[in-house]
Write a protein that binds this DNA or RNA. Structure first.
Length: 552
RNA sequence: CGGGGCGUAGCGCAGCUUGGUAGCGCGCACGGUUCGGGACCGUGAGGUCGGAGGUUCAAAUCCUCUCGCCCCGACCA
């Protein structure tokens, strides 16, 4: 059962609109638990919490150009006077404005400010419950330093802090190299929570700690070009109607033709230039890598019309042979001997295409890393995983401080731009991520540190004694500071047990007449199938011991 | 933005093709029997059929428009 179904069934949240949820009391308790851990660690790291507005005048985004750049994802609002506002998707501008007004001297730095607060992004496609929402709670922190070096220290410090947070939340995660988007900056890492329902693909080495988002992972290694291969066969043009995809090409040629015998040729618009990118048929192009190699901000796949104009060929039949223009080819692509590729003419493909003989290209790794690739750091191999981006930290540099004139006076009285870093955690997303990693067929199995309640007491039957004892134990546990839920509904035992499992409370105490006759009650951990009989007068200690074992 | 699907009782759905008294399961209320892993019997409450317009003697059903939600894709040749 995916986490969002569990979440709804167990009564943690309800949908209000697409990508808009309300957290019910149980969900709110989990949220507060997560927030508390984040606050403890952030405060411990020397960051200061503040609260910025969600409803902000457009002038700040206009100052940095994001009013235009952000596009339709930015939720824009007009007030009664026609003034322009937006609901904040992130707070770099607001915090930078605050800091430029307050910070005047190097003596006031470094500084780290954070908040835990709602964010608004009009996502093209919200999905999977709390995993991708249009309104969500984020912890966002911003560091301010006197220099790039100092900023790197702040960054490293935050990275450690994030490790502490993710570990305390009970998450299995990998820190991966990531793209930092249009802002640039060399240091960028995502905290990816491993989960089948994750939207991101990451690769991680089995032997060392290398891990990266496939968007930026270094894929493959230099391999010999086809021209060095022994038996090159003559180029043959074949008429291949209806073969627009690699899949269709492979089945057209049949036999033992594999996607890895073909070349995938993609035409990209990179600024003023049109380039042809070639990867092996079974590989995926890495657009971010391609853009970096070309030194442009982004590359855009050419439209049908643009392909026709540049190649006089239709999509599906484009190829490097005879292409007049810049060709970027992946090392694994040029290593394929006697490859099949589009012939640059509709509807034909070439057989036995060989790099060096039939076409020349700049050979650069421009494909996404995938399972089985060699690790760029060691002799290990990369594994492919799906991840949920739970956190992202990166250095902003002076991108915002330059644009917004956020400066300080250094020791020599010279004005310099503040160097910034930013650090986000998707708090509501983590609720879903934790559920994703901690559940079974019966329901959720919260790690005790984030569970909405630590103990659930389940009196059984209609007799007065179990109910009275349950109330006593409830009070005794509360007096000890244990967060405890009493199921005092007059439901049948089966119903109570199933619900307790669905809710995922880590420890259940079951009280029935049967046990009370022997002076015992039952104690069961959600993660274990067997229960334990404990003496009635020792149940408080037993429950606390069980919680301690679970790490509470 | 493109494609597909769905909006009927609180929840899950049938009914629509072929127009004619709005149904089923769960849940809910009441009564009774049950009571250690989602019991059972009986009685009952509950619906502007997402919205607007149209066709028709008659529309949940046919037509047009519109709103909302879910899934897939967003140019991977």
């Amino acid at each position: 059962m995916p986490s969002h179904v569990l979440m709804l069934r167990a009564g943690y949240a309800r949908m209000v609109g697409a990508g808009i949820y309300e957290l019910l009391p149980l969900g709110t308790r989990v949220l507060h638990k997560i927030e508390r851990i984040i606050r403890e660690e952030m405060d411990g790291a020397g960051a200061h919490e503040l609260l910025m507005p969600t409803f902000v005048p457009s002038e700040y985004f206009k100052e940095t150009g994001r009013w235009e750049v952000y596009g339709p994802t930015l939720l824009r609002i007009k007030d009664r006077k026609g003034g322009e506002y937006h609901l904040a998707p992130t707070h770099e501008e607001i915090v930078t404005d605050l800091v430029r007004r307050e910070i005047k001297s190097y003596r006031q730095l470094p500084l780290n400010l954070y908040q835990i607060q709602l964010k608004y992004r009009d996502e093209p496609r919200p999905r999977a419950g709390l995993l991708r929402c249009r309104e969500f709670i984020m912890k966002d922190a911003y560091s301010f330093d006197v220099s790039e070096e100092a900023a790197l220290e702040s960054y490293a410090h935050m990275r450690e802090t994030y490790h502490r947070i993710f570990k305390r939340l009970g998450l299995e995660y990998r820190v991966v190299e990531a793209d930092s988007g249009a802002i640039g900056g060399k240091q960028s890492a995502e905290f990816q929570v491993l989960a089948q329902t994750g939207e991101d693909w990451i690769v991680a080495c089995g032997a060392c700690d290398y891990a990266a988002n496939v968007e930026v992972a270094q894929a493959g290694r230099a391999t010999p070009s086809a021209a060095q291969s022994a038996s090159l066969e003559a180029l043959v043009k074949v008429e291949t109607p209806d073969t627009r995809s690699i899949e269709q090409v492979v089945s057209f040629f049949g036999g033992d033709t594999k996607a890895s015998h073909t070349l995938k040729s993609l035409l990209y618009v990179a600024g003023e230039e049109v380039v042809l990118a070639v990867v092996r048929g079974d590989h995926e192009i890495n657009e971010i890598g391609l853009a970096r190699h070309l030194g442009v901000e982004e590359v855009v796949l050419a439209s049908d019309a643009a392909v026709k104009e540049a190649t006089r060929t239709e999509i599906g039949f484009v190829g490097p042979v005879g292409f007049e223009g810049r060709i970027i080819a992946d090392p694994d692509a040029v290593a394929v001997p006697n490859a099949i590729s589009g012939a640059g003419q509709t509807p034909y493909h070439y057989k036995n295409v060989n790099h060096g003989r039939d076409f020349e290209a700049e050979v650069v790794s421009v494909r996404q890393a995938t399972s089985g690739d060699p690790c760029p750091n060691c002799d290990g191999k990369l594994e492919l995983y799906r991840g949920i981006e739970g956190g992202h930290i990166f250095i902003l540099g002076t991108h915002y401080s330059d644009k917004m004139n956020a400066t300080f006076l250094d020791e020599e009285g010279k004005s310099r731009s503040i160097v910034m870093g930013c650090y986000g955690i998707g708090v509501t997303r983590l609720i879903a991520a934790i559920m994703e990693q901690h559940h079974d067929e019966q329901g959720i199995r919260w790690p005790v540190q984030v569970a909405p309640y630590e103990v659930i007491i389940t009196p059984i039957g209609k007799d007065e004694e179990p109910i009275a004892k349950a109330a006593e134990i409830y009070e005794a546990l509360r007096a000890q500071g244990v967060e405890v839920l009493l199921d005092d509904r007059s439901e049948r035992p089966g119903v109570k047990f199933k619900d307790a499992d669905l809710l995922g409370i880590p420890v259940r105490i079951t009280i029935g007449s049967r046990g009370l006759k022997q002076g015992t009650v039952e104690l069961k951990k959600r993660t274990e199938s067997e229960s334990l009989d404990v003496p009635l007068d020792g149940v408080v200690d037993a429950a606390r011991a069980a919680l301690a074992e679970l790490g509470g």
